[in-house]
Design a protein around this nucleic acid. Structure first.
Lengths: 239, 239
DNA sequence: TAGTGGTCTAGACCACAGA
DNA sequence: CTGTGGTCTAGACCACTAA
């Protein structure tokens, strides 16, 4: 099962083994895991070591632990995990989620910028998607997304028109990890200004985001142009 | 020393006790702490409990632990702690720190907005500071800062003209904790456009930030207007 | 009442740094 | 070689949940 000595710490191996099972769908979102003692026995580690692994997964929001209840698989669509990838907030501080409409979808050879940002080799393919997000009938963001074709095989053939990154990852059994978003101001492009219903060249928030998988592979590069209605804003937590 | 039963967990009490000593300057930045066993004995807890407390402080970036070396107090001016409160990055991804010039400083009764954002009672005083930040001779941000007078007694009499929040907190023995920053776009104010050398009403990044102390008291409300030179941006990490 | 995770203890051995 | 933190073990008892 887990390697003994001359290798990574046991609690990291146990953590990754549990994460792998969740990614594989062996333990589905909302399901309850065996208790600490049973898991420890299954992975042949001490209860203390197993606990450390489970606490790590809890801090990574992959598990939820409740005293007296048990250990549960956190749903990727749960509020605390959605909020991580959506920093736009409405006037009540709620994540500004919106319906997604796909405008274009094409497969192509990764260009130089895509290879750099997604850390791809030459000759690797990407899917390019242009989408619009709307909330209450009002489009607030248009985005250009590049996805490594290797991570999302057959994406063009699947019906993914209304799916965001979180839902896509779930459909492909990919666990998302760290990411970085760069925020700046640009003049709206022709397409964006039309879709957003603003004058051409109006200043919009430009969101340049790269999200990695749990294992550190680049999973998405997104460039979004975004308008902020009154009282809506881009929120950043400092911990 | 620490309360026994009927109270918060021992590892949290130990964590706070260590944090308190650091804030009081008993252990200065860069200094080495006693080893785990000695600390455990001093606080009358088991080594495992003491370790949990120290690991927490390490995850809060208050301590640095090095195998074979010891446990050290992290400097508030160290890169990893500065970067938390400065999300502006230059083209190389380095934090965009800048010299600070104070334009105005006044003490006043907190107005309604300040009472709401800083969670102050009526009749509480605040210090209002207007400053400019410049890097390589170019002003890139003007900011209006409100500080609770109760936390920073006698601030007007001290020479704090070139100090930012991090340095101020250190001078007053305050440990900073969580915070939130809201990012949006506004038309530059008269004062800002002049200081930043841009046309009046040009779009600028508006940064609205509240930072708390470690204990959760509001320590600062800042409203900054900011221009982004080529290749500079506002960076957000998603963990 | 039984089962869960949360806290706490008291050790062991290992990897690493420095004298 | 000594001292440090990092890992790992094997228990104990407590607080909470649900049947």
């Amino acid at each position: 099962m887990l390697h003994e000595r001359f290798s990574r710490p046991l609690y990291l191996q146990a953590r990754d083994a549990v994460a792998k099972r969740i990614a594989a769908g062996e333990w589905k979102p909302g399901a309850v895991l065996p208790n600490e003692a049973d898991l420890a026995q299954e992975f042949s580690v001490s209860p203390g070591t197993m606990r450390k692994a489970l606490d790590l997964l809890k801090s990574e929001r992959l598990l939820i632990r409740r005293q007296g209840r048990g250990t549960f698989v956190n749903d990727p669509a749960s509020e605390d995990r959605i909020v991580r990838h959506c920093n736009l907030r409405d006037s009540w501080g709620k994540a500004l989620r919106g319906g997604i409409r796909t405008l274009e979808l094409a497969e192509a050879m990764a260009d130089e910028l895509e290879r750099a940002r997604l850390q791809l080799d030459s000759n690797e393919q990407v899917y390019r998607i242009r989408r619009a997000r709307a909330c209450q009938g009002r489009t607030f963001m248009v985005e250009d997304v590049s996805l490594p074709a290797a991570l999302f095989p057959g994406l063009a053939e699947r019906n993914v028109g209304a799916l965001g990154l979180v839902e896509l990852a779930q459909a492909y059994g990919i666990l998302l990890g760290k990411g970085e978003e760069r925020v700046s101001i640009v003049a709206a492009s022709n397409l964006a200004s039309e879709a957003l219903g603003i004058a051409e060249g109006s200043p919009v928030l430009f969101l340049d985001r790269v999200v990695c998988t749990r294992e550190g592979r680049r999973a998405e590069w997104r460039r979004g142009q975004c308008i902020l209605a009154s009282q809506t804003h881009y929120a950043v937590a400092m911990n």
